[in-house]
Amino acid sequence: MTTHPSPAVIARYTDREAGLDEVTAWSVEVHLEDCADCRALVADSTADDSRDLLARVAAALDDDIAAQPAPAPRRRWTAARHRWTVWQLTPWLIMTVAVLACAAGLQAIKPSMPSLVMLLAPVAPLPAVAVAWSRRHDPAWELIAGTAAAGFTMLLRRTAGVLAVVVPALAVASSRTGVSLALTLLPCLAFAAATIALGALVGVRRAAIGLGVTWTAAVIAPALVTTELPVMLQPGTSPAWALLTLALAAAAAAQSTSFRRLTSHN
């Protein structure tokens, strides 16, 4: 902490005729940068005409600032929304939520059928994940594909944005219809991870279509025909689903160097 210069030194510093030696002037200047009290002293000891000049400059600056448009407000919420999701996902997410609502309604009407919510849960995130990393659905894909942030992290962010809508919707649907929460959410997460892991090899869109068709043909259709819950969704399979989810998430994480270019498969 420096000591304050004496008022006499400050008076000599402000008086241009007094001829304060250079070294003292510098030390006073360095002190003034940090000390508001001494700056006030300097302001008091200046001549009237300098103070008039300063007042005029300040008034002119204030007028200028008042005449110009106000600074743009910061919109944290908008920026965060742009980073985690994209507008073209909205119709797909609405469709997904609507289909899940219909499934929950049907199940309430016909309790003898196998749980439709549970059957549809794995494929629920697939359409929106496919759209999240797609040439034909993203109007600005060409701009985005050439930027540093494009790639695996961006796909993960957008998938997280999709899951942030689909997972609560599934949770609500499963609690309303009284089916196992774990057997609804774990297959959903496993299929989302599988889409990313496969997407690195064949493109996200093809991976989503392939997984969706396979699940529909192999599980949903037989379950609707036989009206029995398939083996892999019986109670007690949730540890297996948890392990599968972890394995697929690891497989997806191993593809972190892929997705650097948005290829025409997507």
Partner: peptide, 23 residues
């Protein structure tokens, strides 16, 4: 050449978003 964009963005949001994408 064919310059796609998100129609609901304002010009400032669009340029800020691209600046963020460019890290």
């Amino acid at each position: 050449q064919q310059f796609g964009f998100y129609p609901r963005f304002t010009v400032r949001e669009f340029v800020e978003y691209m600046a963020w994408l460019k890290e």
